[in-house]
């Protein structure tokens, strides 16, 4: 990289998310809203974190935790209610349509399901090539050459150019999706459960590919997953979400080996591990959908350590140890 002179620039976190908020109206249409009143799910409620250059942040949580919504808000695939997203100091959420086009180049997304994230009526060359045409104006033979390079980078080859998505296996499709994301030479990749829909052996291939690309290209990544093994493997730092809020955030080893939040502990205790049968300690209750929630901790209803204070007031995320933050009154 030639930008070595910008020393302050590289000390700055590449991605900075502040107080991100997104509520969904689930009243079910205008007529129902009039009849039954407004029902909102507070899908993402005051989420803040930073990701340094070259770092991978694992965003872990169950369904309804708001982890995918957070990623889509960062990529501006969903409109934000409030909050800031700064990419290398530039505010994504306030960018105009033109500025956004340039920013899209810097932020790329890999979706969970490679069976639905590729247009069934487009050939591989077009799927990857569109990104090249939009951002670099590549055409014809030049574009084709570049697409082949990208395919080779993800372990495919020129023979796959003319094929349609349905002619590939799940793992190959996800490779194409990764190639599409790499096409714009982004500085940040948001990966939303990119291996969850794949078979175990294929999952390992794609994870290994992502790790390899990350080290070779110096990518910064936000990696969303429900799988603690995967999060532990790919992340430098981990943020655990529950009911739209971050419960705990810190370096991977700190969070996985010295968890501070009862929810993180519970997640670790519910993880079946090979060769350690009989050590499951299930957590009671169901993952809460934050539908018109109260002011307190979102996890309180399932928390074994709950006290009255937990439900009465907001619980902020505070630094308990160096670089290890937790949102819990009992910790």
């Amino acid at each position: 990289m030639m930008e070595a002179l910008g020393a302050t620039d590289s000390n700055l976190p590449l991605l900075r998310v502040r107080d991100l908020v997104k509520y969904f109206d689930v009243s079910g249409g205008a007529f129902r809203r009039l009849l039954y009143g407004r029902r909102t799910v507070q899908a993402v409620d005051g989420v803040s974190f930073e990701v340094a250059r070259g770092e991978t942040l694992g965003l872990v949580g169950e369904s309804g935790s708001g982890k995918s919504t957070t990623a889509k808000l960062i990529a501006r695939l969903l409109p934000v209610m409030s909050g800031d997203v700064l990419l290398a100091g530039r505010d994504i959420l306030k960018a105009s349509t033109n500025e956004m086009k340039a920013l899209r180049k810097d932020i790329q997304f890999v979706f969970q399901d490679p069976f639905s994230s590729l247009n069934p009526r487009m050939r591989t060359e077009m799927i990857i090539g569109r990104a090249l045409s939009i951002h670099f104006g590549f055409r014809g033979e030049a574009r084709r050459e570049r697409v082949v390079q990208l395919l080779e980078r993800v372990g495919l080859s020129a023979q796959h150019l003319e094929r349609y998505p349905h002619e590939f296996s799940g793992g190959q499709r996800q490779r194409i999706a990764v190639a599409r994301a790499l096409a714009t030479e982004p500085s940040l990749i948001l990966a939303d459960e990119p291996v969850s829909s794949l078979d175990v052996s294929i999952q390992a291939q794609v994870l290994a590919l992502l790790q390899d690309l990350r080290t070779r290209l110096g990518l910064t990544m936000v990696f969303i997953t429900h799988d603690l093994n995967v999060a532990e493997y790919v992340s430098d730092r981990i943020a655990v979400m529950y009911g739209g809020k971050i419960m705990e955030e810190g370096a991977t080893d700190d969070v996985m080996q010295r968890p501070l939040h009862p929810y993180t502990k519970a997640l670790l205790d519910t993880r079946p591990r090979i060769g350690h049968p009989g050590q499951l300690r299930p957590l009671e209750g169901e993952p809460a959908v934050p539908l018109n929630p109260g002011p307190g901790c979102r996890f309180a209803s399932r928390c074994p350590l709950r006290i009255a204070e937990c439900t009465e007031q907001a619980v902020p995320l505070v630094e308990k140890r160096m670089g290890h933050n937790v949102a819990c009154v009992r910790s």
């Binding site: 889509k72 990529a75 695939l77 086009k101 899209r104 180049k105 932020i107 790329q108 997304f109 979706f111 969970q112 399901d113 639905s116 994230s117 590729l118 247009n119 069934p120 569109r130 990104a131 939009i134 951002h135 999706a177 599409r180 994301a181 096409a183 714009t184």
Partner: peptide, 12 residues
């Protein structure tokens, strides 16, 4: 469909 979302994501 995710591919429409994916199209937004690459800047279409």
């Amino acid at each position: 469909r995710e591919y429409v979302e994916a199209a937004h994501a690459i800047g279409e």
